[in-house]
Design a protein around this nucleic acid. Structure first.
Lengths: 173, 173
DNA sequence: CGACTGATGTCAGTATATGCCATCAGCGTA
DNA sequence: TACGCTGATGGCATATACTGACATCAGTCG
């Protein structure tokens, strides 16, 4: 992962070959592909843990909450991922992703997987399907907005999340 | 496109090579790649026209409308794309996409491009950035929901759209 | 000591994708 | 008519991503 990140940052994602990454890491190409399904996946390794955190928090949210309220409280634990110390790393990672269409594509897929997981969790709470899907999507939108705020300014993630959620509320007001 | 669709449906996307598509279409592989950037793009050829329609309609929406109202009215012209005659084709296309991760990935990217275009249009109407992004994303969510309804039942697209937009409203109520 | 296991290496092969040059048909113009 | 231009296609070479099959080797357990 370190080797890949460094090379992607240095000469860009497209201009980096798996052979180069492997060599830098002191491994063979074949071994690289045993750990990562493809060249992009290196940058999205932690994404399952990420989604799991959200889903678990959703499961733990009080049943009294509305669909959106539950989603909101499911996003809060993500502040453990988005701490001040990791902001710099996140910025570098983000710059790489933003600069390449294939990586953006993968990111969207991961986010939509997150949305589906959220929707499934909501349905389990008894939320009707269409509501569940819309609330889940809205949650991901709010998350993206909060993430951009967190990464752009020195605002901490919880407050960015709160601000974004407020924006959503004014949207429909 | 016909050749590709037929083969994708017949033996699946992964099991179909570009060489086979080209042969069936009476062309060479090289020519295939002059028309389509990659193997997936065949299924998303019309997507720019699609996005343009939405953006144009958004530009034409009365300025008195709220952000969400404008997005809603921007989606309505899509009923021209989703007519009864095209439902069958859409179903076949959808089944292919749903069955393959790479294709799903590409679809997400197209939808997120649509969301970005919508957001840009909203900003041009004076909508603040975060509101614009959230409203655009919500619009795409509503569209997806409406599309699934349209494709699943024999409901026509405008009514599916209306129903989905209602769901969004009850979500935040 | 021998069997098993997990991680890695080696190698061969397939498919995607791109660049470069050749060809050829159609079309307008001197 | 002859000429040159243009756009679409073919042909070829090549890089790179990925996959499957088998070999190797270190550790470990009985």
């Amino acid at each position: 992962m370190d080797a890949a990140m460094a090379l992607y940052a240095l000469r860009g994602f497209d201009q980096t070959t798996v052979a180069e990454i492997a060599k830098r890491a002191g491994l063979t190409e074949r071994t690289f592909f045993r750990y990562f399904a493809d060249k992009r996946e290196v940058l999205f390794a932690g994404s399952e843990a990420f989604a799991e955190t959200v889903v678990r928090a959703l499961g733990a949210a009080p049943t009294s909450l509305s669909a959106l309220g539950a989603v909101n409280s499911a996003l809060e634990p993500l502040s453990n991922f988005f701490t001040d110390e990791r902001r710099d790393f996140a910025r570098r990672r983000n710059a790489i992703i933003a600069g390449n269409a294939d990586l953006l594509e993968r990111e969207r897929l991961k986010l939509s997987a997150l949305a589906e997981a959220l929707a499934a969790g909501l349905r389990q709470r008894g939320v009707p399907d269409s509501t569940a899907r819309l609330a889940a999507d809205a949650g991901v939108s709010v998350f993206r907005l909060a993430f951009d705020r967190w990464i752009g300014a020195d605002e901490d993630f919880v407050s960015a999340l709160r601000g974004s959620m407020d924006d959503l509320k004014t949207l429909t007001a």
